[in-house]
Design a binder for these strands. Sequence first.
RNA 1: UCAGCUGGCUGGACGGUCGCUGUCGACGUCGGGUCGCAAGGCCCGCCGCUCGGUGGAGGAAAGUCCGGGCUCCAUGGAAGCACGGUGGCGGCUAACGGCCGCCGGGGGCGACCUCAGGGAAAGUGCCACAGAAAACAAACCGCCGUUCCCGGCUUCGGCUGGGCACGGUAAGGGUGAAACGGUGCGGUAAGAGCGCACCGCGGCGGCGGUGACGUCGCCGGCAGGGCAAACCCCACCGGGAGCAAGACCAAAUAGGGAUGGCAGCAGCAUGCGGGGCGACCCGCAUGAGGCAGGUUCGCUACCAGAUCCGCCAUCCGGGUUGGUUGCUUGAGGGCCCGCGCAAGCGGUGCUCCAGACGAAUGACCGUCGCGGAGGGAAACCUUCAGACAGAACCCGGCUUACAGGCCAGCUGACGAU
Length: 142
Amino acid sequence: MRISTLKKRSEFQRVRGGGRWSAEAFVLEGKPRLDDRIEGPRFGFTVTKKLGGAVIRNRIRRRLRAALVELANAHADPRFDYVVVARKVPAEIPYAKLRDALELAFKRVHQGSKQTRRQPSAGDRGSVGDAKSPPSKRAELD
RNA sequence: UCAGCUGGCUGGACGGUCGCUGUCGACGUCGGGUCGCAAGGCCCGCCGCUCGGUGGAGGAAAGUCCGGGCUCCAUGGAAGCACGGUGGCGGCUAACGGCCGCCGGGGGCGACCUCAGGGAAAGUGCCACAGAAAACAAACCGCCGUUCCCGGCUUCGGCUGGGCACGGUAAGGGUGAAACGGUGCGGUAAGAGCGCACCGCGGCGGCGGUGACGUCGCCGGCAGGGCAAACCCCACCGGGAGCAAGACCAAAUAGGGAUGGCAGCAGCAUGCGGGGCGACCCGCAUGAGGCAGGUUCGCUACCAGAUCCGCCAUCCGGGUUGGUUGCUUGAGGGCCCGCGCAAGCGGUGCUCCAGACGAAUGACCGUCGCGGAGGGAAACCUUCAGACAGAACCCGGCUUACAGGCCAGCUGACGAU
């Protein structure tokens, strides 16, 4: 199926306060849309420059997009907006594993869970997924 | 065969499943126009979880270092100053700081490589450390001479060692990136272009070359250390900003507020007031224009022009940051022919080759091929690796990154003929 994408910075910012699930290769955020005139789920991709050059970032986005196309019909909620934030390099992990992790992430986000699988060690910056925390200065997609 | 130099090309191939985007066609929905009484037909436009055809990243797309095209602003006429850049000569080019050929310096046996390669007798400045001395020169050691003092030897003519002082000396030592030409012979107390030969250097002239320059002859005893990627001088070149340029459509906010500076002159028109018998005169307000003034274009001066009549400067506040276009046919690429050593130029006529905008050009899988390692006599098998890197208005270059593979020409060594 064809997936529509988030375009504006404000749309990305709005999803930030919703459900959140962290996997090895990415973080999936999702939130129900207020505007019900739009049909179907929408997706946004955030791949920072920290992960590599343009070629690597393109490949990360394309693999994530391909996995979403495969799963979105069955697992995504049409009333939701989602943001996929790439963390490590998904190009390095097998595609089947990436797809399974994404499937699990959809279920967890829909449960409205704000807790994460990530342990509070390993250089974690504060509480994650707190809607009241100030928006981080991270660059959205390059 | 080995070692090497230069130039160029390439940057895995095929297939399957599922996707994205441009474009063409079909189909369908919607809208409009037109024909028709009507059913409906035809044309145009937009859209599409529809179907089919076809195109879809690079040699560097990169760094954004130069040069252009194209836009808008300044727009004008040049000058001077300032700033920035370039720097052997000739050619090529739209242009260049690029390319080609040649010259000169340096390196290599050689093919070749390399050089920011104008001026240091216009001026200023600098030359660390070391060294005696770093530039109108200069004597630390050494060498030589003379006077004096202390010795040794003596055939009493002298010879010789040491020291103080004075003088000569740039050959030698030592320092340094660099020491006031180099080598040799003569010369001298010792030395020194002091003299001579050759080399280097400078000047003049002849010849060759479009030219950089080369070469030959004569003269000069050597003047002018280096640094200009220190200032500088000379010659030449250069307006500014960039596709978030710019144009159009739609929507929205509005013709904001504060502080500071300047709001000058004369006339005209209208209205009001005052004066005069009257022509008219005076004052105020408003309006349109003129001059002056201010503002911007790097600065200055001149002429000329534009903008605004309330202007200018600074600060604060508010709104839009949607769509279409620019947008891909261009100094484009390719075949062949001619000219040129070459860069390139001319002709011919073939071809259309990405146009996205939170940003497409892909995801997954299989087979084969290339390369390294291991096993094997071989066929082959196993395993690992496959680079640098993603268009954003478009061209011409430069620079930097790059696994591997291929081709051509040339050089040196060895061997064979």
